[in-house]
Design a protein around this nucleic acid. Structure first.
Lengths: 134, 134
DNA sequence: CAGGATCCGTTTCGATACTG
DNA sequence: CAGTATCGAAACGGATCCTG
C-alpha cells in the first residue's frame, strides 16, 4: 500500500456531524452517565455534579432520543418511572468518551480513579464490553 | 489480574474536565482545522464551512491558548500575520478527534473521504504521526 | 414522589460593521 | 490580516407548577 502524505488528507476531513452532540454542553455528560454510571432515569441525571436544570435535561433527552442515541421506555415495575438506555449507536460512543477521559487524565487535573484509567488503557475491548453488561 | 465488574467502576468516572473544550460548539472545530487541514492563521479558520463569527473565533483562540492547547506567535515573515499551532497537549487530542470521525462515519451521514477513514482505521499510530509532520 | 412543562431574569451567542 | 464593538436573538438556570 502506498503511503499517503499529510497533504493528501488536508481539507478533506470534516466533522460535519454531531455539532449537536459534541458541540453541546450537556449531551455528552448524559451519555457519560448512561455509559459509566449506569444512570437510567430522569432524576438520576439531575444528581450529577454538573447540576443540569430540569428543562434542559428534558430537552436533551428528547434530542438524544431523536438522534437514535438513547431509547426511552416506561418502567415495567413502576408506571411513574421512565427508563433511559443507550442504543447501539449510543454504546458506539464509548471509544470517544474513553479517549476524552484518557486525554483529560494525562493533561488536565481530573479526579478519575486510577484503576478505571488503567482498565481503559489495558484491554480496551474488554473494558468496552464490560460497559454493556447490565 | 482479577476481573473488575462494571459496578466497581460505576459512579467513579467523571468527565470533570474540558466542558469548555468538549462542551463548546467551536473549540473542537478549531482543533480539527489545526490538526487535519493545517490551518494556521485567523482567516483560515473563518473559511471553514461552519462559518464561525470573528468575535467568537477570537474568543476561542484566546481560551485555547490559555488552556495550553495551541500556541500563538507572530509570523517571522509577515508582521501582520499571527500563526497558530497545536501544542503537544493539542496534538494529544488526535485520538479523540479520530474516534469522533469514525463514529460519525459509521452512524451519521457524513462526507468523510473513504481513504482518510481507511487510514484512520488502519495503522492509527502512523496516521497520527503523519498529522505532526509539517 | 417521578417526570416533566412553563415562566422569566440573566448570560452567552452570533451576524455585521468597523478598526489598527 | 487580525481582530473589536455593537446589539438583537437564542440559550441557560432556577423556581415553580402540573399531572399521573
Amino acid at each position: 500500500m502506498k503511503k499517503k502524505s499529510r497533504d493528501e488528507y488536508r481539507s478533506r476531513c470534516p466533522i460535519n456531524i454531531g455539532l449537536e452532540l459534541f458541540g453541546d454542553r450537556w449531551s455528552l455528560l448524559i451519555v457519560r452517565d448512561l455509559l459509566f454510571k449506569g444512570t437510567d432515569h430522569f432524576n438520576g441525571f439531575l444528581e450529577s455534579q454538573e447540576k443540569i436544570a430540569t428543562n434542559i435535561l428534558a430537552d436533551r433527552l428528547v434530542k438524544l432520543e431523536a438522534a437514535g442515541i438513547l431509547e426511552r421506555r416506561p418502567d415495567s415495575q413502576d408506571a411513574r418511572r421512565v427508563r433511559y438506555r443507550l442504543s447501539e449507536k449510543g454504546y458506539a460512543l464509548a471509544p470517544v468518551l474513553i479517549e476524552i477521559i484518557l486525554w483529560a487524565d494525562a493533561h488536565e487535573d481530573t479526579a478519575a480513579p486510577p484503576d478505571v484509567i488503567a482498565a481503559m488503557r489495558g484491554n480496551r475491548k474488554r473494558f468496552i464490553a464490560s460497559l454493556r453488561k447490565r
